[in-house]
Amino acid sequence: MNIIELYQQPQPYLIVAAAVLALGIFGLLRRRTLIGMLIAGELIFSAAMLNIMAVNRFYSADPTVGQVFVLFIMGLAAAEVAIALSVIIAVYRNYRSIKTSELSELSG
């Protein structure tokens, strides 16, 4: 595999998508604030979009479908960010904190 034609191979894209997915899941497990977990969730979304685009470019007979699908994912991710941030701000108004260890009223 020549490095000049690397961008015409599907493997680099799939490996980068796998790395971003793993880092996103790691961040979701490690982060202690709600905004940090939201950012990790966005990384997972991005990994899914890159994977869909790579498969769409190299292995799909109709390259339009993946692009339309990724556009829909972007719209859903934007809606999710709006809702999650308003929930985070409401939680901060009530608890004066967005650390996940302090939001434990229901655990007794």
């Binding site: 599907p10 490996i15 793993a22 007979a61 109709d62 390259p63």
Partner: peptide, 25 residues
């Protein structure tokens, strides 16, 4: 483990390239 399995599936998986392209995207 997630990274290793996903990257291995991407590199070694038996993907089939389509014979024709319907459009250019």
């Amino acid at each position: 483990a997630i990274f290793w399995s996903a990257a291995r599936l991407g590199v070694l998986g038996d993907w089939t390239t389509p014979a024709i392209r319907l459009n250019d995207g």
